[in-house]
């Protein structure tokens, strides 16, 4: 059994093919996840639509207002982009820490987001940076905040007639610190047991002016830790306050047992690694 492979050269052509083949079509960019699911026999589409030849979906551009990453930009292109490094070094480090260089050379950011595996690295960091995705359909374009993109394991709020075309990351307010930490008890290229992304900005008086925290591998989707954020907003982030805020992550996550840790262990580790991430931002502001 095989499928027909299509390589449209424009988004309009891709949308056309999707309309023609409906549920029998599957989109791929780098095709890493697809190849695995196909080999496992979990996907049997009649038509596969490859997006990699669509020129407008690639590349990375930066303006004063935002960083725009094309959906078919590979993890490695993003890791090596000077624009990304200028925008946010923690974003560069996040991409550099994904799996191995082989995977980063093939897997794309658009594919990563559309695949919606809750243990992936870029989603929590992009959530903490307030990113949004652009989705195109025959009806036009719309943007979806990353906070609203992930619905369930492997499930996004993208409609079946939409193509994810780009990821937009707004410019960070001056003085914003960012970090991405992941707990890897087994190997460096593994998926994390838990991962934590955080951004923080301080007032001149040393209070928290702005904070965003997001976690991966702690439930069916990557998730914002709003209880942690609320506990820190306006506070002087001393060690006790951070420990208290980090403990509140329990209310924001819904982990389930997987091969990288039981739900209970993930809850413990989410608290520990949230505290570490927040402390590193406070200690790093000097």
């Amino acid at each position: 059994m095989t499928y027909d492979y299509h390589e449209p050269e424009t988004v309009a052509e891709a949308l056309d093919l999707m309309a023609r083949h409906g549920e029998d079509a599957h989109l791929v960019a780098g095709a890493t996840a697809f190849t695995l699911l196909w080999r496992q026999g979990l996907l049997r589409p009649g038509h596969v639509i490859g997006l990699r030849r669509i020129v407008g979906l690639g590349g990375i551009t930066a303006t004063d207002k935002e960083l725009v990453i094309g959906a078919t930009a590979t993890h490695r292109e993003i890791e090596r982009s000077a624009d990304v490094a200028r925008h946010c070094p923690a974003l560069t480090r996040t991409f550099a820490s994904v799996a191995t260089v082989r995977i980063r050379n093939q897997a794309t950011l658009g594919g990563n987001l559309a695949h919606a595996d809750p243990a992936q690295d870029p989603p929590p960091m992009l959530m903490a940076l307030g990113a949004e995705v652009v989705a195109a359909s025959a009806a036009g374009e719309r943007t979806i905040a990353l906070d609203d993109l992930f619905v369930d394991v492997f499930t996004t709020s993208l409609r079946s007639d939409e193509v994810l075309t780009a990821i937009r990351v707004p410019a960070l307010a001056p003085g914003t610190h960012a970090t991405y930490l992941k707990f890897l008890p087994q190997t460096a290229d593994d998926y994390a047991t838990v991962s934590v992304a955080a951004t923080m900005r301080f007032t001149d008086d040393g209070e928290v002016a702005d904070v965003r925290v997001a976690l991966g591998a702690c439930g069916p989707t990557p998730v914002r830790a709003r209880s942690v954020e609320d506990a820190l907003a306006g506070a002087v982030p001393d060690a006790a306050r951070i420990a208290d805020a980090a403990a509140r992550v329990d209310a924001d996550i819904a982990p389930f047992d997987d091969v990288r840790g039981s739900a209970g262990y993930k809850r413990d580790m989410a608290r520990v690694w949230t505290e570490r991430a927040l402390l590193s931002l406070v200690e790093g502001r000097a």
Binding site: E23, H26, L37, L42, L43, H115, D152, V153, F154, T156
Partner: peptide, 11 residues
């Protein structure tokens, strides 16, 4: 009978 279970792209 017949039951359709959808999990992301997997049906």
């Amino acid at each position: 009978g017949s039951l359709l279970v959808q999990l992301g792209p997997v049906r």
